[in-house]
Computed example of a mutant assay.
Amino acid sequence: MTRQDAGPRTGPGPAPGPGHARVSRRRRDSAYPYALYLPAAVVFVVIFLVPTAMAFYFALTRWTLFDSEFVGLQNFRDFLAEQNLRIGFQNTIVYAVLTSGLKVVLGLLLGVLLTSRLRLRGFLRSVVFFPTLVSTVAVGITFAMLLKPQTGLVNQALALVGVDGRDWLGDATTALLSVALVDVWKGVGLATVIYIAGIMSIPTEYYQAVAVDGGGAWHRFRHVTLPLSWPATYSVIILSFIGGLRSFDLIWTMTRGGPGFTSDTIASIIYKQYQAGFFGLSTAGNVILFIVVTVIAVPLNYYLGKRQVAA
């Protein structure tokens, strides 16, 4: 074979083969999709990463709007020494578990009901979802008025049936529970919508198979709806549990963490430090809350994700 037969060559070494051309083409083709990530990446860095890094730094300082003094880990030691922190941490866990559990149970039951052949199911879906659209602060103020011991409509309605109402938000044994139930009322609509989407995505062939085997409504729920709606359950648990750990606005508008410190959560304790002007101390509390949520949510997400794959 002569040099002319081998074709033109631009330099020493073997000529590039078809594999090299495919790699180059793939790189050219992937340049456009990767460019679309840039705006979101900039927003993520500016809105999340930069403030997070600044929070970790300012948690090590005593700071105001005009200056800061580096104090190391002293803010963390002071925050962890708060006398009501143990109560706040306990309330945060109880609140998150209670609200997320009730949202899962009620959301699943309402999802099953609102995917059945009800004549008014479209209207009822709107009614169930409506509280999700209302401002949390407005909900807190409204229910704080409804639960007043003397003039609240809740106790007045109970009096009509001969039941003596109580100071729902002023009693240490019922304050946190009352706020948690209002949280469930407001958030169960979103859980229901997630379950409706999950249930409607289940193929009808599974229900037909149960019917062929002579199964009734309970068998359809137990052997089809419940296991195959696990992705929806996974989403509801993660969203509601993390939301419960970060709960603040509803608790603050209804009880201010009272009576005393009995309904305080970690977030309300942090806000009280901000109110008192201890900005570095409250920033350290925010960092601690971030770590607590991460330490709890990441293993939970991993565990539930494994169950989802197994299902």
Rank of each mutant, 00 (worst) to 15 (best):
I237K: 02
R220M: 13
D249A: 13
G243T: 01
W230N: 05
S247Y: 04
F248A: 09
W252D: 15
D249V: 12
F248K: 07
V236D: 02
L245M: 10
L245P: 05
S247R: 11
W218H: 12
W230G: 03
G214V: 12
H223A: 11
G216Y: 14
R220G: 15
L239E: 00
S235N: 09
S235T: 15
G214T: 13
G244D: 09
L226N: 02
F241Y: 07
L226S: 07
S235Y: 06
I242P: 07
H223R: 14
F221I: 10
G216D: 15
W218K: 11
T253R: 02
G244R: 01
A217R: 15
G214E: 13
R220W: 01
G216L: 14
G244H: 07
I242E: 08
R222S: 13
G214Y: 12
L239P: 00
D249E: 14
F221T: 09
D249K: 06
T225I: 08
S235Q: 08
P231F: 01
I251T: 05
I238D: 02
M254W: 05
Y234N: 15
I242S: 12
R246H: 14
L239D: 01
L250W: 04
L228D: 00
W252T: 12
G214M: 13
R222N: 13
V224M: 09
L226C: 08
F221P: 06
G214A: 10
L245Y: 00
G216S: 14
Y234P: 09
T225H: 07
V224K: 01
I251N: 01
G214L: 11
G216H: 12
L228Q: 04
V224W: 08
L250P: 02
V236Y: 08
I238H: 03
Y234M: 13
L250S: 11
I251P: 04
A217W: 11
S235M: 12
S240C: 10
S247V: 14
H219R: 15
L239H: 03
H223Y: 15
A217F: 10
P231A: 03
F221L: 15
P227V: 06
H219E: 14
F248S: 10
Y234R: 10
L226H: 02
L226F: 00
R246M: 11
L245R: 00
A232K: 05
T233P: 03
S229L: 04
H219M: 12
F221G: 11
R246Y: 05
R220L: 10
G244P: 03
V224F: 10
P227S: 05
H223T: 14
L228M: 12
F248M: 09
W230S: 04
R246L: 10
V224H: 04
G243H: 01
L245N: 02
R220V: 12
S240E: 13
T233G: 06
A232I: 08
